[in-house]
Design a protein around this nucleic acid. Sequence first.
DNA 1: CGGATTTGACCCGCGC
DNA 2: GCGCGGGTCAAATCCG
Length: 294
Amino acid sequence: MERKESVKIEDSVRLSPFSDHITDMLDFSYEGEKSSLGFVELLGFQDFSPSIFDILQVPLPSMEPSAATQTSAVPAASSEILNQPMTPNSSSISSESSDAPNDERTKAVDEEDQQQQKNNKQLKPKKTSQNRPKEPRFAFMTQSEVDHLEDGYRWRKYGQKAVKNSPFPRSYYRCTNPTCNVKKRVERSCNDSSIVMTTYEGKHTHPSPLIPRASPAGLPPRSGFPEALPMHVTFPSHQTQFNNLSVPLNCYLGATNPTASVRERRFCTPSPALLRDHGLLQDIVPSLMMKNEE
DNA sequence: CGGATTTGACCCGCGC
DNA sequence: GCGCGGGTCAAATCCG
């Protein structure tokens, strides 16, 4: 199924110049085709090639879903620091569903986290992830005809919900690996049906089942995202670390899909002043488009 | 037949 | 307190 999709998107996928609307993430731009850092790295795999966190030398949040202590895994909803624009013609946005001031929320993150964990323990065992600290998330947008982009992992769809103010439903996927707690959400922009927003939550604790771990000639290992090229990746917390990021992060293209024609654009976050309460995607995309057109 | 998908129901957080 | 919306569960269904 995904194979079919990957074929289709070979010609259709390209990065959208828009940012995602993901609420609580760190944005940082990257440029593909220049390095071997695959998108998969962004999902984790510290046991393989250096993750993006390693490369950026950013304190890596405890992304292990099973980690006993998640103090560094700041709840995504608590992280709202945004990057500064890196290029005049680039823009990205992390809209927030909450209007709470950044500093306020970040201050209380640790305590809230601990409290939350305490409360969760005291509460009756709830099956949902709401009992657990929120996983680190990042998101990107691609322009694709297919919703579920091949990323090198196997996903099982466990839900689909209609999105308010959007004709397109949001799909929920979970990594099929029983030991892996990574989830991803996929939805389309209501303004541009060709734009697919993918949000990853958590970190893979296993190698890609579809791609060999080792890759020759410096090709990105365990290829995962020939079609889906994150133009805008976001992380919770530590965002300021990326503010001055000058090293282009990239996704390799075509490692397993050489014909994939993916165009990427450097994508940076606008100044915080531009990032207030964009909320839903439909609120974001237009502003970004406007900004890009400027 | 096993795994993946669909889909309605349910739970929870949040805003009013 | 109530309603809404997001996220998840799980039974039913589909598909290879």
